[in-house]
Simulated scan of single mutants.
Amino acid sequence: MRRMIPNRREMNSTPRFLLDALSDSISSGIFIDTKFYVFSRREPTYGRVSSPRALYCNSRILDKVPYFSTLFSGGFSEGQLWDISGGFPTDFDPYVEDYDYLSDSDLEDGPSCLGEDEGGTHGDDGGNPQQRHENAEAMRTHQPVVPNSMLPDPLSEETIADRDDCGTIDDPPRMGKVVVIRDVGALTFEALLFFLYTDDIRFATFSSDPSGELAHERAGDWSTGKLPSPSAKSIYRLADKYNMSTLKERAMTHIRNNLEHCDIVEEVFSSFTSL
């Protein structure tokens, strides 16, 4: 029997960015090098979003999005390396009071749930005034921000090597990029990362559809293979901000194709439509 030899197209079917990421991980032993904190819960009492979730990825996939490629390579603080093993930065209140899309159906409802990745609220003496001013400015412009005091200084390879005369370290820090996202829900951003890895996305039904699931029911459960199901409107809004035309078109196609299954009056007069 003649042995079948895969053609060049089959051999090159794996995306270049994924091959690069796998190559790096094989030689370094590290695949995850970027950590995002993204808020997941809407607090009805205070009208703010809270409960930041940690989401991880390989920076190679983010190069597909010009927004992140510029952010990490343009000399901004987000391009520096930090220990990504730490919890939510203490310089930041774990909530956002001016989230510009409070009707976002990808946010869960209820009081803040403090987890291992979320810090407590600061009192009047918490944090330094200059850092708080910068945080407030970043929140107003809806930009990802990274705290200056997560570590005294970004750790260099030389600093790490100097910790042990033999050149080895017990429990070395996990070096990577750390970014706090303040204008997108965690479920939406999780689905974005999955899309960047796989070019696949699955949308939820409209929130005005009586059969629709709540946000916490649509979150991904990777232990069971359940994919996240974000709102198409939330994904459209995110794709528009990040200038991702393909993802934006997929979201709009889903919206158009499913209008007959929703309360059209509610959708026409929704905050999403006005935006």
Results as ranks from 00 to 15, higher is better:
T168L: 14
R163A: 07
P147M: 02
L155E: 09
L151E: 14
T159E: 15
E158W: 03
I160R: 02
A161I: 14
H142I: 06
P154F: 01
D162M: 12
G167Y: 01
R174S: 01
V145C: 03
E158N: 14
V145E: 02
L155N: 01
Q143H: 04
G167A: 13
D164L: 09
L151N: 01
Q143T: 08
M150E: 10
P144D: 00
M150S: 03
A161T: 14
D164Q: 12
Q143E: 09
N148M: 10
D165M: 14
S156E: 08
V146L: 05
H142V: 06
N148I: 13
P152K: 15
H142T: 05
A161S: 11
R163L: 09
G167L: 14
C166F: 03
D170T: 15
P152Y: 07
L155F: 02
S149H: 08
S149M: 14
I169T: 15
R174W: 07
Q143N: 00
I169K: 00
E158V: 15
C166I: 13
C166L: 09
L151K: 10
H142S: 08
P172G: 05
E158A: 12
C166H: 10
V146W: 04
I160H: 01
I169E: 04
S156C: 01
G167D: 11
N148E: 13
M150G: 03
I169C: 03
D170P: 02
E158H: 04
D165L: 12
N148F: 07
